[in-house]
Amino acid sequence: MCTGRVDPALVAKAFKKGIDGLMVVGCYFGDCHYITGNHQAKAKMDMTRKLFKFIGLNEDRLAFRQCSSGEASVFVELVSEFDQKILDIGPLGGDGDTVKAPEIFKKLEAAEAVLAGEKIRWIIGKRTPFLETGNMYGEVFTEHEFNRAIDMIIVEEMEVQEILARLKETARSVKDLANDLTIPPARVFRYISALKRKGMVALDTVAGQTPIFQIARQEV
């Protein structure tokens, strides 16, 4: 099994369950036992770190490092260094993170849904083709552009998952959601209408003049 097997959703799950730090150690680039698996792992962990940073978790809690199986001393160094770093940052949801416990666990729950979700997995899976062989129209993207797209998708997907998480609890109006999540109502409305189109959210009732939305019972 390769570091490429490390599923970002599992990483989020591990943090949700309460670990304070996680280090993925893979082969050096060009020296991977599984040829290119470490490149995939690096891309996935980089993306996960971005997401963690966005949700207010200290992104240094997740590290991707490289050493070869023959480099015991390097491995020891990496582990000791990371251990010390996590000790410095302190327990999850404490002083080291911008969002504190127990709020952070709610965020991690949404993060796990994002990382297990379709969109971000699709785009990170498309990374190599996008950067190397180009898309269907033969357009090759630069890393810079790709990272920008990832940044945007992280924001969108997190907000969408948080909306869905809130709606799972109870049906709500756009205004309520906007207040709960401190996202501008206009944006919440756009998410809701997009989710409606995707068949993930449905209208529950109309209370007075305010439509109340609920999670769609049957996802298409």
């Binding site: 969109k119 945007m152 995707k198």
Partner: peptide, 10 residues
């Protein structure tokens, strides 16, 4: 509708 769900271009 899978394409709509994964499309990154909003």
């Amino acid at each position: 509708k899978a394409c709509i769900k994964v499309c990154p271009v909003n």
